[in-house]
């Protein structure tokens, strides 16, 4: 279970998250929706430990393990995977090399046996087929020259191969056309499991037509201001975020 309690986060001394509290039980998919500037991306970065996102108060733990004291790689080894809104291009490092290096680093950190090259190759082939990705793309430097949709697919592929237990999807639908959105969503849905939690961060309801959440939370001005079932997302779509925004005092 993901437990976030009274989380305060500042970026460049400016408070962004101001007492965010949220719980996601194992096996559940929760959506976090909110207007631009509400702190949605900050939530994902804070949980994954991006430098520059300073936690000033509160706590966050995954399956009872405190996340905030760990460095980013340790959090990844603990099962946290952040699917980036804008995945980085890493010139000079073939995608396959990158993923295998990451997988083995995580396995080492957990004291597990590293995966052999032939075994890994088999896994990659299967996973890329499922996502309808051209296998040759995996030999190219990671994300370099990829389209927006290809980059998002590459994120989902990494997710499938690294097998994290906490998935944070940051605006995964941005930059996707309808076909790409369907393929990516199917990829995510295939990863649903009883011991895996997902936090789906999104501005639009559209993605939730494909990835059905168990619960929807509204993030505004750095806090969760409302929570409800999937119907809350439809309500937001129809009425907008206005009623959740702080009114001028």
């Amino acid at each position: 279970m993901l437990k976030i309690n009274n989380l305060h986060v500042s970026v460049a001394d400016k408070p962004i998250l101001k007492g965010l509290t949220l719980e996601v039980p194992a096996g559940e998919v929760h959506a976090v929706m909110g207007p631009n500037g509400a702190g949605k991306s900050t939530l994902g970065y804070s949980l994954s430990g991006r430098p520059g996102y300073e936690v000033t108060d509160g706590s966050a733990s995954w399956n009872g393990q405190d996340l905030l004291g760990l460095d980013p790689a340790e959090r990844a080894a603990a099962g946290v995977f952040l699917s980036f809104q804008y995945p980085m291009e890493i010139p000079g490092v073939p995608a396959m090399t990158f993923i295998r290096t990451a997988l083995n680093a995580q396995k080492r950190a957990r004291g597990e046996e590293e995966v052999s090259a032939p075994a890994f190759l088999k896994q990659v082939k299967a996973a890329s087929q499922a996502l309808k990705m051209d296998f040759d793309m995996l030999k190219r430097p990671l994300n370099v020259g990829f389209s927006g949709g290809e980059k998002k697919r590459m994120e989902i592929l990494q997710m499938a191969l690294l097998e994290p237990s906490l998935l944070i999807l940051d605006e995964t639908d941005s930059g996707l056309d309808i076909d790409a959105l369907r393929i990516v969503s199917e990829g995510v849905n295939a990863l649903r499991r009883a011991d895996r939690s997902m936090l789906v961060i999104t501005h639009y309801q559209r993605l939730l037509d494909y990835i059905k959440p168990d619960k929807v939370h509204v993030l505004a001005a750095g806090r969760i201001v409302a929570s409800g079932g999937p119907e809350l997302a439809l309500e937001l779509e129809a009425e907008g975020y206005d009623k959740f925004l702080p009114t001028a005092a």
Binding site: P51, D71, P72, A73, A76, P87, E89, I99, Q106, L162
Partner: peptide, 11 residues
């Protein structure tokens, strides 16, 4: 890029 790589579990 450093953060991205670390996020995937590489120290």
């Amino acid at each position: 890029a450093l953060f991205y790589i670390q996020q995937r579990g590489i120290p």
